[in-house]
Amino acid sequence: MITITDLIHTWPTQSHPTLNIKALHIDKGERVFLHGPSGCGKSTLLGLLAGINALQSGQIKILNTDLSTIKNTHKDRFRADHIGTIFQSFNLLPYLNPLENVTLGCEFSKQRRKRLTDKKTDMTTEAIRLLKALGLNDSQLTQHVSKLSIGQQQRVAAARAFIGEPELIIADEPTSSLDEDSRHAFIETLFNQAGDYQASVLFVSHDKSLASLFDRQISLLDINGV
């Protein structure tokens, strides 16, 4: 699924590399917990994986595609097609309702829409199904996003990440703004959805208490040789 070899990344304003990863491999369907203190390069790694930050040296292969060989515009398309993202908080566009926020996940990807067509469904139907599976009720589907609780907002963000079945889900501390009970419930629903079609999950957090729920834990400090 993901293979990283000899990755070195240095931000232009810094003299030392932020990342220096010899090797990292994540399998299809694997749920990986990546932890490390803030400032250790987690966000940089995610940016590189998503193809937003340009690769400087080394190799990242996702789904057997070498990111260093594809052009920037294709990286954006690749990300749209294959990667679903959940941020820490405020994941939603305030001017779209929850349903529209979810279908936004398909707007920039032909392939995600095609997968829905292959499943004999469409964006809206699938968005409603996902939102309901993640625990939202009918009236919440079209109300203003600011009326939802933070937990509900994160569920909508998860639904957007999952719609159209991208192979990789990147979650960047999605539970940090949730309370203890909600965290476990959220991760459970995340795993349920990912399990449905064998998506890989890369879950980044500094909260080690969640680590036990995952197939594998990786400490960025351990693999990062800076």
Binding site: I52, N72, D76, R79, D81, L93
Partner: peptide
């Protein structure tokens, strides 16, 4: 800027 990052994450290009 948040809005822009969200759009980027779902595949919007800088030109978008």
């Amino acid at each position: 800027r948040r809005e822009l990052a969200i759009l980027r994450s779902v595949g919007a290009r800088p030109i978008h």
